[in-house]
Design a protein around this nucleic acid. Sequence first.
DNA 1: GCCAAGCTGTCATAGACTGACAGATGTCGT
DNA 2: ACGACATCTGTCAGTCTATGACAGCTTGGC
Lengths: 219, 219
Amino acid sequence: MTATETPPVGRRERKKQRTREALIEAAFTLFGEKGFDATTVEEIADAVDVSSRTFFRYFASKEDVALTFQADLHDAVLRSLAERPAHEPVMTALRRAAVGTVLACERGELGFDPSRFRCLMDLVGDSPTVLAGSLEHAQKKQSDLTRAVAARMGVDPGEDLRPHVVAASAVSAFQAAGDVIRCGVLGFGALSEAVDAAFALIEEGLNFPSASGGVSPPR
Amino acid sequence: MTATETPPVGRRERKKQRTREALIEAAFTLFGEKGFDATTVEEIADAVDVSSRTFFRYFASKEDVALTFQADLHDAVLRSLAERPAHEPVMTALRRAAVGTVLACERGELGFDPSRFRCLMDLVGDSPTVLAGSLEHAQKKQSDLTRAVAARMGVDPGEDLRPHVVAASAVSAFQAAGDVIRCGVLGFGALSEAVDAAFALIEEGLNFPSASGGVSPPR
DNA sequence: GCCAAGCTGTCATAGACTGACAGATGTCGT
DNA sequence: ACGACATCTGTCAGTCTATGACAGCTTGGC
């Protein structure tokens, strides 16, 4: 969260919120300077002038502070999905929700900070620890997504395989897009474009032939 | 790998292999008894009568020992994919390679130990740490898969988004299948069946309508 | 049998994370 | 304003994962 203006009632709540935000800010700054692994929890805590014990009262782990942003992003996608018109096929609705959210993120809308977004992408790309945490978190969120998709399809996720596959594929579209951006290849300038293209491919079905055109069978 | 009968040349090599296998065996036993987190590296090492320092000379981390099996499985899928006839569409080839490998695993063929396979699935389901490691490892292997798929399609993974999406979708089929099995729902008795069904759905394209009134699931 | 190379154990260390306790600070009723 | 209470925080002590350094033992080649 970067700017949610829900004024907490008491001074204590406000202070807590400030401390939390300061810790995130300091963490991202240090991660950007020295990298994730080279940054210690103590350094982050010192930068905000709290004890490292206190850090762990705000975040369950060092990864956790890096993934707050990703958590917000996922929530935004879920919220956006709920607002898509009911006549859209599930995969289309998912694609528009995902692309819209990523676009908003890139443009700094909805209270998202684009520079922090970029920093997160670098962290995920550079640090295996953060990558693992990111995937784990995505996996957890995937079950929420499965339920949302099942509800939209009007089926029971306990009896139908399809919502599971749809949710998993949506997540994999994100992964493939991130993959492509990280490799720096192709003409995709922004993540939103790559996400859109990946979703489109999945929607259409992945019936690609092996060894393009009329290649003579070797053997 | 559980039983690869390639006798290493020297006694030293054989001893190393035995130590490694013993560590895996002890680890899986302890994980099964006490769970992943409650088992310490020292306990595993003690069970084989080596120092914990030695443990880390065989495995990079505690997760690593749990994921050796998964690594073997992934390698087997890649090898199986290479052997699929060239006329099969990529996704079909991938599906048959995946299902065939999982089936072999469930039947205890190819040197795979079914009980260890089950233990791994439980570990992944129960311990977030192992889950994160498993996903991270899968992500790494996904880039290998992307290259293999690109080669099979005869395209450059640096210019074409499709192999990335295909590989990511294949991995997501596995995830969805594991998801479904772990939830214990549906009529899928074994992972291989769920994997097959998930691949089939993706191949056909995920064009499902949203909550249309009175449509019943096919099959 | 000897020597170099490779394994292993021991010691020391850093860093992530947790439980327990005491002191500081905010909140609320009166 | 003042005291009772809840909550937050720092300090301390401790566990566990993981790594570097060094010394001693085992193995393989000669």
